[in-house]
Write a protein that binds this DNA or RNA. Structure first.
Lengths: 201, 201
DNA sequence: GTCTATATGTGGATAGAC
DNA sequence: GTCTATCCACATATAGAC
């Protein structure tokens, strides 16, 4: 009969511990690279024995999965910039916010957008969060104009390409992401041209 | 006095053995992922003992470095499509050839274009080959129009973005790379607009 | 050059005591 | 939940026989 309330604060403590583990795991991943993350390191930094981690995550991949979910969740929590009726202005604002978020933690971006860890594949639940984050980012554009899936795919490729190049070839710099405004002008032009050539499609 | 000719066929045999190791290493990387490559597996598949590999490569990273060099070399060996005076046609042809090459071995593309292996950084010699391959791919465009570094950066981001999305989200499919023609039209439009707005810059 | 044998250090993961 | 002890696979490296 006492199980419910007891379980509550136990679950709370457990969740707090899990969150702390995820926080430190993120730190270590930023320091040693995503694949360089080791459970021994993680446990040492947390002041616990390595096997104790298995009380909170059933495997290293489960830990990656939780980091994956949490990462997309931060994007979902990102407030959308003020809506603007002008397509170019709206595109620029959303994209700038996204790029800032991506560059603020390149390792997180790598985990979320590339399949680089051999055995890891996000669980269906984690993938669902990623999907919601995607729709969250696309919502302002959808509200402004009619876009096809192809239009959105081209946008994600363009923005993702700039971010990838920046992270891979000049971490910390602005050579590629400095082209975001140009890229968005280009893309807005494209959208308008499509709207006039295929209005009945 | 016999050293020179003797050294010749010895060096030949040695090079043949190195090439065979690289070939099988590529196979294994495609099967188990780049980071999943193990020297024990590699030696087993080659029918030799693991320590024997050290006669050909002084470390695992040296092996990655050779794979890196060889990978860029295949791009350098890629014949450029017939030159065409029309910008859009030329862009489409070059890009199609590049995309085909990239998708024909996604793991190679990952090794060449992302820093995903913790300890590995290409040697200066390997990096020089990568640079030459880059110029090789850009040469047809350069021959046709005056382009700034920013123009080329936008192109690499756009094409690389399509390839990355394809590999990460739908390996084996065509959802993103099917947009290459659209993307090149978009980019050609951009180049022409730039040429007319900043002719004196 | 290539093998066997061996050694160290790292990693994920499990069993079982407390 | 947490610990110690342990297992297995791996990278790296060396010694010594053939």
């Amino acid at each position: 009969m006492l199980d419910k309330p007891t379980g509550d604060w136990r679950a709370e403590r457990r969740e707090a511990a899990r969150a702390e583990i995820l926080r430190v795991a993120g730190q270590l991943a930023r320091e040693h690279g995503l694949a360089g993350l080791s459970l021994r390191d993680l446990a040492r930094r947390l002041g616990m024995a390595a096997p104790s981690l298995y009380s909170y995550f059933e495997s290293k991949n489960a830990l990656y999965d939780a980091m994956f979910t949490e990462g997309w969740q931060t994007l979902l929590d990102l407030p959308q910039p003020d809506p603007d009726p002008d397509l170019r202005t709206s595109l620029r604002r959303s994209t700038h916010a996204y790029v800032r978020w991506a560059l603020e933690d390149p390792v997180r971006y790598q985990l979320l957008n590339q399949r680089t860890i051999p055995g890891f594949e996000p669980s269906p639940e984690a993938y669902a969060v990623a999907q919601r984050a995607y729709e969250h980012m696309m919502a302002p554009l959808r509200a402004l104009v009619d876009v096809t899936q192809e239009d959105l795919d081209l946008l994600t490729a363009l923005v993702g390409g700039l971010i990838n190049q920046q992270i891979a070839n000049e971490p910390g710099g602005t050579r590629w992401v400095g082209l975001v405004d140009d890229a968005m002008d280009l893309y807005a032009q494209w959208l308008r041209a499509r709207a006039t050539t295929t209005p009945a499609a």
